[in-house]
Design a protein around this nucleic acid. Structure first.
Lengths: 345, 345
DNA sequence: CTGTTAGCGCTTTCAT
DNA sequence: ATGAAAGCGCTAACAG
């Protein structure tokens, strides 16, 4: 047993086990094609030497890296952190490694990320892009034949895993309206920067129209402070309910109301969108449209690994729609006519 | 220009540019050692063919992958998500990719992660382990000569980047005591499961002793519901201040108080530890000991990449202590004698 | 300044 | 069932 080598190779194991390198390789890749006896010797030798197949060599030879490239906006938003957690877990279970790259919602970084990942020979990719319709990165992937799936995005031309957020917000507005809310506003991040925000807004408008109510939208920068929202609601005919296009904005909205001297949910109701886990631990619990974030990650991994196994490319037909749900917390008052029994906390 | 090849190689570029493969390689690795003319031709050819150096081949040849392995408990806790964000950003800036693996606070997964990463030939590693003193994974790394640094952990025998949380909590207790709080309790996750929790507890005990107060500890499972805490504080001589060993526990504590009919901070003060960004957006703002989480990630990357560049191994002497600070939010009332001017919100 | 060439560690025909 | 040998794409001597 020699320990001075940095990392044992097939050669070392072969020598130690008195077999050829081919046999060592077979033990690790097709154990059934090796005689009991030889296999045992190889396994012992490998353990003794602390041998692990070198991933780069294997990748170079097989042209498959068992690496999934992940492109997402930021880990600072728990939605994406939760999704990545789901991806990480199921990738590991499926024998894949992941290489995540963040884009900070920046198009140039999005493209750079895809380039890096292609050079790093990721077998497949999972990405959250700002605009599927115009992404040149996706075109590159298509051209290269690399399987990929979009998460949270929604577009006819690409495989996507997401929830029907249009329907979710439409239904949410309906509930709010039926329970007596008439002035229901939406607070959203920049619509131009994200197709998710656009979908949610579309659902909002549809719901308001169906209820015969007048939509009103406040569009704020991603990093807008609470003061921005506070100024907007500081008026006599302020909304009685605020639908926020994501949970982070909902937190700021609650803060804005509080500073304005408004009690949540007595004076004003706040609803978020995303269903971040943390929302459950807030006081009051954040009422929100729950997306199964970890599940979305898991499904994305399933889709691309299945494509890899089958050697297929992916198309929009492979898209998956996951179920959303409402979390009925204490941040929203169902004025007259609560839909569910009672709110948490 | 041919586009039917999946991925162009040095050979293709060499042919197109009428030079040898060595020259192509040089253009990408030592541009200054190539004549203007040849370089231009290679660059053009590369762009035309959409050539990117194959990472696996390069890794195999140079024995350096420019990959950083990251091992952390979970992305569901924003502390680690924020840290990973810092790691991702600075790794990208330094030309490194990252491969994160989560352990779910499980020792077996911790070891498996290190094995996977070593086989995947990570050049260096950044990890958050449960117990540096007894980690066999770290021994393997030492034996292999792979540079690594621990984040959040603190141990004499390893290079660490962290904050002095013992001092932080000690000082926090002092402030609380001086401002009039006498019944100051700590709510912590399982001490045995994390050296971070142990440090914070040690700081708490030291602070209480210095103030001549009686420590009282509630130790709860990681996923304990708010009811657990609620039951504990449901008594006449309940604490007037709760120091929670992390921000997630602080959120649950606030919920517990609320359910118990206690107003925060009027009836009871809550302080967290970690400084997750989200805490700023809560109502009331979460009072907490702020760790510079992204900065910790950034520093960890700096340390390992410096070691890689210098070809050195890392030791405890390379450890870095970053500054912590207090975030003075509205979840804590400084009874008589507030330390800072006024609380936020 | 440039080209030739030998491997990095592995998997996989193709023989035996 | 096993071994010999070729070669994945790249970089770094070494020669010129």
């Amino acid at each position: 047993m020699q320990c001075n080598r940095l990392q044992a190779t097939v050669q070392d194991v072969a020598r130690e086990a008195q077999v050829s390198v081919a046999t060592v390789s077979r033990v690790f890749n097709h154990p059934d094609r090796v005689a009991q006896d030889a296999r045992r010797r190889v396994e012992t030798a490998a353990r003794t030497l602390g041998y692990f197949p070198n991933a780069s060599a294997r990748t170079l030879r097989t042209q498959r890296s068992r690496v999934l490239g992940i492109v997402l906006p930021t880990l600072l938003n728990p939605v994406f952190a939760e999704c990545l957690q789901g991806i990480a877990r199921s990738a590991t279970a499926a024998g894949y490694s992941i290489v995540p790259l963040t884009t900070e919602y920046d198009l140039a970084q999005e493209e750079r990320a895809v380039n890096v990942l292609m050079a790093g020979s990721a077998d497949a990719m999972i990405l959250v892009v700002s605009n599927p319709a115009s992404s040149v990165a996706l075109q590159r992937l298509d051209a290269a034949g690399t399987p990929y799936v979009l998460a949270y995005n929604r577009h006819e031309g690409h495989p996507c895993v997401s929830v029907d957020s249009v329907a979710a917000v439409t239904e949410l507005v309906g509930r709010l309206a039926r329970s007596g809310h008439a002035r229901i506003a939406m607070v959203s991040g920049q619509l131009a920067a994200s197709d998710r925000a656009q979908q949610r807004h579309r659902g909002y408008v549809a719901g308001m129209e169906a209820a015969g109510l007048q939509p009103q939208l406040l569009e704020i920068p991603f990093d807008a402070p609470a003061g921005h929202i506070q100024a907007w609601i500081a008026r006599a005919d302020r909304p009685t309910a605020l639908i926020c296009s994501n949970d982070l904005i909902a937190l700021r909205a609650i803060q804005a109301c509080s500073r304005e001297g408004l009690a949540v949910p007595r004076d004003i109701s706040i609803v978020g969108f995303d269903g971040i886990e943390l929302g459950k631990d807030l006081t009051p619990v954040l009422t929100t449209v729950v997306q199964p974030n970890e599940e979305i990650g898991r499904a994305a991994v399933e889709i691309v690994t299945a494509a890899l196994a089958a050697g297929r490319k992916l198309s929009h037909a492979d898209s998956r729609w996951l179920a959303w749900s409402f979390r009925d917390g204490g941040s929203c008052a169902w004025a007259g006519n609560p839909t569910t029994g009672r709110s948490a906390v």
